[in-house]
Design a protein around this nucleic acid. Structure first.
Lengths: 222, 222
DNA sequence: CGAAAAAGTTACTCAAGAGTCACAAAAACC
DNA sequence: GGTTTTTGTGACTCTTGAGTAACTTTTTCG
């Protein structure tokens, strides 16, 4: 019964794909300009459709914002799962997890972030997103504590360490453009290496990530 | 001719003071919610007046935003001046400068930041602010290079190092509240120490700032 | 005190952008 | 092909928030 060997996705899937596309495109603009600074006309234009078309896939702007947050948190969770699975020490777990997260955020697919703008959401939804975020931060904090205990991380204040780490990481969406000469991988490796060096129990004297050794003229986008 | 031994400021000064108050209060909210996410009614309410009153001190919202940016850049410049004057190596200059900057940002007076939102400004003003910001970043980069040359900073990519540093620092406005148990000084010292450890040529194994040694239950505001 | 200036308020107008709806184009199915 | 369903559009309504103008209250100063 399946024609084209299932190469052509069915209605349901296409619908879901389009919804995903909207979410990702919206997230990109939200990150740069903030959700209030972005009109749905903007988002629609970037997708080559009109605003009204969006409403077939999304209940309203708030719903879209919520979806962005949810996907961001989902991705963060997956990345940290991998980090915990593959890393041996607390430090390694964070390193691997955060590298993956950053790569996802700024990589080819351009994935949501904006842990920033919960203030915009209201009611039940806000509570849910904030809950997810708090859980995420708590998890990160526990990994820092684990790292301190196993000797891979220095005697830092876990809460502050996480704030500084997430600051450095989320900030990337403000300046990074895939059109520049730095690839998402380059940036992720180099940035996380530098940040983690600040937390490491015995930081290596050398930095090994590519970007630190190439003098490429990075241009701020736009 | 001067009554009250000049203890009561004259008209001019009072006007200027009120304008400053508006700018600072506005900057605080802008930083949290973004300028688009903030209404002038919000700002006015926090100052205990009505929106219309603001217009006696500020031409319009854009003018206010511009003023915030300008003051932020001014403060950044002053702090870096001090850093350059007092620091001996590249690393020390950045450390002193950034500690001061962060303290100003979140300290008692609650000073503007939002290097983030230039996209909102337009025309000549945008160009001016972006020019100031670029100059500031270039200056920071030069200090990193100086540090690499004098052996106080590791072989990092200066551009990336600055991005990570400014990310960690600016992020603070998203989570810090003066109502918590951490003082502005505590946070500034501890955060900058951690960040600079990531760049330092030979990072000390111990972290000395207060917060790293006290287990205070920090509460996220609001 | 009383006049004049300054500071602030209430009640508006006006634009931008969220969301809707009746219709048009395209795709799917027979 | 023709019919039905899905996807998208153009032209709207309605809300929110920037900015204004006519006024009231407060301060200043003779």
């Amino acid at each position: 019964m399946s024609r084209w060997a299932n190469a052509v996705p069915d209605r349901e899937t296409q619908l879901e794909n389009k919804r995903k596309a909207i979410i990702r495109e919206a997230a990109k603009v939200f990150n740069r300009r903030g959700s209030h600074g972005t009109t749905l006309d903007d988002v629609a234009e970037r997708l080559g459709v009109t605003k009204a078309a969006l409403y077939r896939y999304v209940r309203n702007k708030n719903d879209l914002l919520y979806a962005c947050h949810e996907e961001a948190m989902e991705i963060a969770r997956e990345c940290m799962d991998r980090g915990e699975a593959e890393g041996r020490t607390g430090r390694e777990k964070i390193e691997i997890g955060m590298k993956g997260y950053l790569r996802e955020m700024i990589g080819a697919m351009g994935v949501p972030v904006l842990i920033l703008e919960e203030n915009t959401l209201t009611g039940e939804r806000a509570r849910r997103i904030i809950g997810l975020r708090d859980a995420f931060e708590a998890r990160m904090r526990r990994l820092v504590e684990e790292g301190i205990a196993d000797g891979s991380i220095a005697q830092v204040n876990p809460k502050l360490a996480i704030f500084m780490l997430l600051g450095a990481v989320h900030w990337v969406t403000k300046w990074y453009s895939p059109k520049g000469v730095w690839t998402a991988d380059d940036v992720s490796d180099a940035l996380i290496e530098m940040v983690m060096r600040g937390l490491s129990a015995e930081p290596s004297p050398e930095l090994t990530a590519r970007i630190h050794h190439t003098t490429v003229p990075f241009k701020r986008p736009k």
